[in-house]
Design a protein around this nucleic acid. Sequence first.
DNA 1: GTCTTATGTTCGAGACGAGAACATAATCCT
DNA 2: AGGATTATGTTCTCGTCTCGAACATAAGAC
Lengths: 400, 400
Amino acid sequence: MTTSADLRIHNLVRLLRAVHDADEPLTRAGVARLLGIGRNTAAALVGELEAAALLHEVPAGATGRGRPTTSLLPHPDGPVAIAADLREDTWTLARIEVGGRLTELASGEHDRTPAVFAEIRAATRRHAGDRLAALGVAVAGPVRHGRRLHISHLDWDDVDLAEHVGDEWPTTVDNDARLAGLAEARRGALRGAGTALHFHIDFDIGGTLLLGGDAQRGAGNIAGEFGHMPLTGSPLWCRCGVQGCWSLQVGTNALLRHVGQEAGHGRGREAGREILARAEAGDARAGRAVDDNAAALGHGLGALANALDPEVITLSGLGVELLRLRRDLIERSCAEKLMRFRRAEPPSILAGTVGEASPLRGAAELAFDTILTPAWLQARLPARPPAGASARASMTARRP
Amino acid sequence: MTTSADLRIHNLVRLLRAVHDADEPLTRAGVARLLGIGRNTAAALVGELEAAALLHEVPAGATGRGRPTTSLLPHPDGPVAIAADLREDTWTLARIEVGGRLTELASGEHDRTPAVFAEIRAATRRHAGDRLAALGVAVAGPVRHGRRLHISHLDWDDVDLAEHVGDEWPTTVDNDARLAGLAEARRGALRGAGTALHFHIDFDIGGTLLLGGDAQRGAGNIAGEFGHMPLTGSPLWCRCGVQGCWSLQVGTNALLRHVGQEAGHGRGREAGREILARAEAGDARAGRAVDDNAAALGHGLGALANALDPEVITLSGLGVELLRLRRDLIERSCAEKLMRFRRAEPPSILAGTVGEASPLRGAAELAFDTILTPAWLQARLPARPPAGASARASMTARRP
DNA sequence: GTCTTATGTTCGAGACGAGAACATAATCCT
DNA sequence: AGGATTATGTTCTCGTCTCGAACATAAGAC
């Protein structure tokens, strides 16, 4: 970022990012105010983005006095991302455009082997069209260096994604808990939070630290395994190879184990939900299982809040239900583990607002993050006319 | 960052930051290469910084072929920072200039009450001169919202710094462990690390997460209390109000407790060092105390590495000695708590290279961070001549 | 039907960094 | 000793950027 040309690209990215991040379509005048640039500059930037088929201007509905402006919508020929969410035995594919509108494309079951990636690729190919710019995939495990996948409950140990992903499109595979958090940070309850934590509770517990709206990845892209810290003193050994992991007491597996059912191998999500239902209906044993889960969850959150000082913590997956059923217990347990001087201002603990599809939404954000960059935009921009040439030669938007 | 003027300031800050961060004085030609700007642009930027009394150009010693260039040194009338390190019964004051040269100014003992801040202010006033631009203070406890200080071993509970710090100079007070980490990230073993952890081990253990060279502060400036997570299952209650804190097993207090001596209240640092000496000399009981400390340290580091995935972990304070005496045990204990798939690439654990004064150095970096910003630079820059005026009217550098 | 208000559009101004061409000061080589 | 080589400093032109001011335009308000 040193030259005037860089400045232009920087401002183009800022504008496009603003449009993408907004909940409601922005207007051209509105984006000028938002970015603190002049109306003339906004007109030039938007024009360039329209020429690159990245935005489409349409007359905005009248909103009051003054000359009507235009709404900035995704361009009909603009780039789209495809996001996939890969679970223990199913997968979902969706298409996302600039601005965040998400359309589900396909879904299927799979045989618990990495062959599912070929299935996802095939489905992607079917729906790709010529607008597909990037692919994001959420998986239920850490992806070392973005390439080597570990999902212990599927016995996927060190799966080399290079062999399964292909290079037809720029593809990023990442951890579902991290992506769920990213979705909350960009379009959910963590919007605007400077420092936040998100935990995605499914069979076990995964999470991510969010700083300024970005999910932290660590040195090897495997940050966020908060579930594998010994926070609550469990005597059990975890499949990860460590004794006492927090995950042994929080999540579906912990619930199942508590009522004496078999846990692990990515089975029993339904049985876990049933335990919650029985607890809600008054069953004592199920209730104790849920209590245990909630207390362990709260204790861990308190410990992590001491270390990372989030202003807010959100939960997705099973966490939403735990919060609905046992908010008090979670908050009390959290406070127990908070340093005394923190108890006056504990972090708020909220249910995520993005919903069930938050890993999918996060995968979409991830895909767009690879797109909304100076480098990509630079390559995408049509060559500028070499000075003196007519600026409005053609209204036909073309892509180079 | 939208206009050409912002671009200029941005590049000025980049240049000044490069000079400040460098180990050796940079040359003008060197900085042009480093920043990827033209020699002409570099000349203009440096000229402006010289005019603002921020840099001083002096002929560089010949280094080979080619026309000799100039070295970029701190300006003799340039801004300086003063840094203070406040320990349980002593304080130290030092002066730092652009580029990082540090001169110790004064030190003293104190009575363990916040009255020491007045002493530090008085000493600062004695040494301030008219070049003092910012003050940074390292303290052995969390500083909530940058204002409210908690040091449990001095029984300082919620000390309001507004009453003790004054507003003669821009002053930032922050946690010593965080600042020690910042010093390592800027001038020590963590240079260039994207994701890193630093732990400062003294009576207990404090730390910080470092991302891209910046120490994370959390939502209320109280991130980094890793020592108050229950990572190693201690049954004891901590003074912070929580049971089982990691700090109960790591640090001078833990050493003292292990050999049956009284621990706490910020006393016994010498006795702690003695235990290390006895252990080194072969004393069995002291040896077991050190073993216990080292094992607990390693276990905690492993757990934290699972969650945060640092590429490197550094230690300062007592940690340097523990590493010297028990590196193997620390690394083995760390690996025990690492998830199995991480054990092939464990984070390196290194002694900090900044040395004993790392909190002080970190406080200096902190002070300069408040200086080396676009806003400060903008205010500092002399008004530009209104165009057409002679550019080299006067060689006399003045400050507005 | 006119006034008010918000936005679009046009044009000139000021500033910035790049790049090329040239000047300069050291070392290297014969 | 003197020319060749090399790296840097300096100067000037050029293209680009955003801004601000002035004016044009399209809606609602009175």
